[in-house]
Design a protein around this nucleic acid. Structure first.
Lengths: 335, 335
DNA sequence: CTGTTAGCGCATTCAT
DNA sequence: ATGAATGCGCTAACAG
């Protein structure tokens, strides 16, 4: 039997009801697996649904039930596997609860404009995961009735999973100091965060932790800002080392993506890890391991897993806020 | 004046109408900037909206108007700036039409499951941009009434913007042959695409174009498959060059991301471009330029721009299909 | 210019 | 177990 509606549009629940000689309530029950439906009618309805290719209209469903079963995952970058890993771990724990996670990159002015309008799609989802982004000034007085969960950022007003980035900078400092020589020169390769209402200051905290530590040990630090790309670190290091001094080189690059570039440059210059230089970065992306990059490992998968669990517990009734600081671990490899 | 509804939920259009002493139709007109509304009442309504923090329910709006004003952008990867660039160019031309583009990564089994259900959120948007992905077997007989536009893939059944990847492989072959020596050994570093219904075979086409070309010139090619990461190319090249032969090395890496890794390896080995080896890849990502990578430039921004224009013209009534092949350009740099 | 009304497709009482 | 009726919040005729 073919669909017999010439409206050139999808069949609705009403069509299905009519075709299977039941009420729409019954159809609703079978597609939602709720309430009691006899096996026989259920089977019949399911057949009709299959034949017609029916699928429920999500807008109508959300309007009626006041839930969208979708979640927003807001990220500041599309070219960094860091956010891909978190996305996957979010999904893998959210899939059970049948939520759909959609990604909203916040990488240019258009995005910024959009997200600031309260009519934005983001606010139609049941919850928002904000990653490496701050919400300080976005909502001002009126915080939307949405669950907001921060990943890789801390804010007392929202659930958040994060690490202590200041401490990360200190750890890097310790490592570099331990591996330094009397003639060591210290470098910081980092990313200059844009100054808008979304900056989470992840980098500037790492920077401060590092420079404070070095200063307290009487060491000077040369800071270079890099583009947040695979070889932004490469260019930055090239700039930093214009004149070769012969000194031992100790560098802290604020993330693996930058660190890889730095290492690329060192390799090119024929400098040997631990002999000519030390290098430590942050993240522990798969790419870093291959290059022998020493790094301060972030619990990336856990960011996603825990954030997802936070949402689940919230949707099950939790009222209090949760702030969870995750531990980082120094991983020493070649550099 | 404060909102006077204790329902702990958002005010609706009805609330606004009541508070401003107008009908809901009038409110609808002002928030949509449609129809005629006197300046005075418009002003009053706007004030109430501001006071109450009202914002329209998108589900209700979509249900009623049968348009969502949202578009899906489906990508196979979240760690590749290629897709970020396209996203930005999509947005920059779509912003005028007030569409919201949301990203759906298709990177794991959960995603695949989701997208195969016709109830998926994707099918609630007004259109779908599928990037570097094929739709051959997804929809079988029943193609959804959604506009589908392919980016970086060609399919006669859908609008598509793409390049001739077979030709790209040939171009790479020509370049390498031109720069080769009698003793040259030829390498191909590429990515082995998963065999599911989404593979667009971008890589296998480049591979074939290249190997066919080399074969027709009596050259042998050693193929190595790499992970699609920054330094997947690095590992692949390391594997390929286990025993050093002293021969001139000519390598085609199927994309810049891989090419960067290859170059990293060459640098590390102290091999000099054009003296010890030639290397060409595909894309022309910003990162490649910094590394002096010779490459076959894809018109990445144009992918997004043209795809977006395709959607706009479609939404304005276009009926025919458009298939647009973009030209690539060889960019010779150090390698 | 403005208000009334009829759906949009579905979930959900409330009867039966 | 099942159907009829109500409403979710909004847009789009239609009247005035």
């Amino acid at each position: 039997m073919e669909t017999d509606h010439r409206k050139n549009s999808y069949p609705t629940i009403k069509d299905i009801a009519k075709l299977s000689n039941v009420g729409i309530a019954t159809v609703s029950r079978v597609i939602n697996n709720s309430g009691k439906v006899s096996e026989s009618t259920k089977k019949r309805v399911l057949e009709v649904i299959e034949e017609t290719g029916y699928s429920p209209n999500l807008n109508a469903r959300s309007l009626s039930s006041k839930k969208s079963y979708s979640l927003s995952y807001v990220v500041p970058d599309m070219g960094n596997s860091f956010y891909g890993i978190i996305y996957s771990s979010l999904e893998s724990t959210l899939i059970k609860s049948n939520y759909r996670t959609i990604v909203f990159p916040l990488i240019n002015d258009f995005d910024l404009q959009k997200i600031k309008q309260k009519t934005d799609l983001i606010y139609q989802t049941d919850g928002v995961f904000l990653t490496s982004l701050s919400v300080s000034k976005i909502f001002r007085s009126k915080i939307p009735h949405k669950k907001i969960i921060l990943i890789d950022t801390a804010d007392s007003r929202f659930d958040s999973v994060y690490i202590d980035n200041y401490k990360v900078g200190q750890m890097a400092g310790e490592y570099l100091l331990k591996n330094s020589r009397p003639d060591s020169l210290f470098y910081l390769v980092t990313f200059k965060e844009l100054e808008n209402e979304f900056t989470s200051n992840v980098f500037s905290k790492r920077d401060k932790g590092f420079t404070d530590f070095m200063k307290s040990h009487g060491k000077n630090v040369k800071i270079t800002y890099a583009d947040l790309m695979w070889n932004g670190g490469y260019e930055a290091m090239k700039k930093s080392l214009k004149r070769k001094t012969g000194n031992y080189i100790s560098v802290f690059s604020a993330c693996d993506m930058l660190g890889l570039g730095v290492k690329m440059f060192m390799d090119k210059k024929g400098l040997v890890p631990k002999k000519d230089y030390s290098l430590i970065s942050v993240d522990d992306l798969p790419q870093g391991e291959m290059s022998g990059l020493s790094t301060i490992k972030q619990p990336i998968e856990n960011f996603g897993k825990i954030a997802a669990e936070m949402f689940v517990s919230y949707s099950e009734g939790r009222k209090n806020l949760i702030h969870k600081e995750l531990k980082c671990k120094l991983i020493e490899r070649e550099t």
